[in-house]
């Protein structure tokens, strides 16, 4: 379960403070799928980063499975991420020095899980990249890179998967394939999925829809 409690984020700018998030509260239950949509610059990605514990709020708190993130330091948040959270970035964020296989193995290795190689291989096969295991990110197309990123996110069996504009850098056709893949894996793994998107098709696939506007969030009916 994810719970946002009066979440606020502001950053100092040249002429004062810019409020990105203005007190956001909501709850997403285990196994739900949720989409956060809104205009560029409305604060969607910032919210997602806070929910995943990748950044800290100026005020308010996030609870993941009842654990308030505010009480955790950077290392404890990292441990929580390692245990429960997966993240898919818009810009993929694959490590260029690692092959596709090694990128997927990385979270498993960091968590000290055994059988990382086999598991990573399985996931890459599931995303259709069984033949590209030893390719480096620069040798893969955008869609392929995002598929590796998705395999990496699911490989660690997270309870919650956050995805920030997973199709944002892809063409429609490739984007559709990625959407299919995301939901297919989500269903089979029973993961809670929270994503940020511009893509109406993607948002429509989620059970719940939230609309972000100038730092405030409203659930669409």
């Amino acid at each position: 379960m994810i719970k946002a409690i009066n979440l606020q984020k502001s950053v100092p700018v040249a002429d004062g403070t810019l409020e990105i998030l203005r007190g956001i509260s909501f709850e997403i239950k285990r196994g739900e799928t949720a989409a956060i949509v809104g205009a560029s610059g409305s604060g969607k990605s910032t919210l997602l980063g806070l929910l995943a514990g990748l950044d800290t709020a100026s005020q308010g708190d996030v609870e993941i499975d009842g654990q308030p993130l505010i009480a955790l330091d950077e290392d404890a948040r990292a441990a929580l991420r390692g245990e429960k959270v997966g993240f898919v970035f818009q810009s993929f964020q694959l490590l260029p020095a690692l092959t596709a296989l090694e990128n997927v193995m990385l979270p498993l290795e960091l968590a000290g899980q055994s059988g990382a190689l086999q598991r990573a291989r399985d996931y890459l096969e599931r995303v259709g990249l069984g033949a590209r295991l030893d390719h480096y990110p620069t040798m893969l197309s955008g869609g392929e890179q995002q598929r590796v990123a998705i395999a990496r996110a699911f490989a660690a069996s997270p309870a919650i998967l956050f995805a920030d504009e997973p199709t944002g850098n892809l063409d429609t056709n490739t984007g559709n394939k990625i959407i299919e893949l995301l939901f297919e894996l989500n269903q089979s793994e029973g993961t809670t999925l929270v994503l940020v998107t511009h893509d109406e098709r993607l948002a429509a696939r989620c059970r719940r829809r939230f609309l972000m506007d100038s730092g405030t969030l409203e659930e669409a009916s």
């Binding site: 950077e74 290392d75 990292a78 441990a79 991420r81």
Partner: peptide
Amino acid sequence: TDHVAVMKSLGSSRQQ
């Protein structure tokens, strides 16, 4: 720098 950030987002601690 990005590598470190990605590893952290995947759950690595500072000590790791």
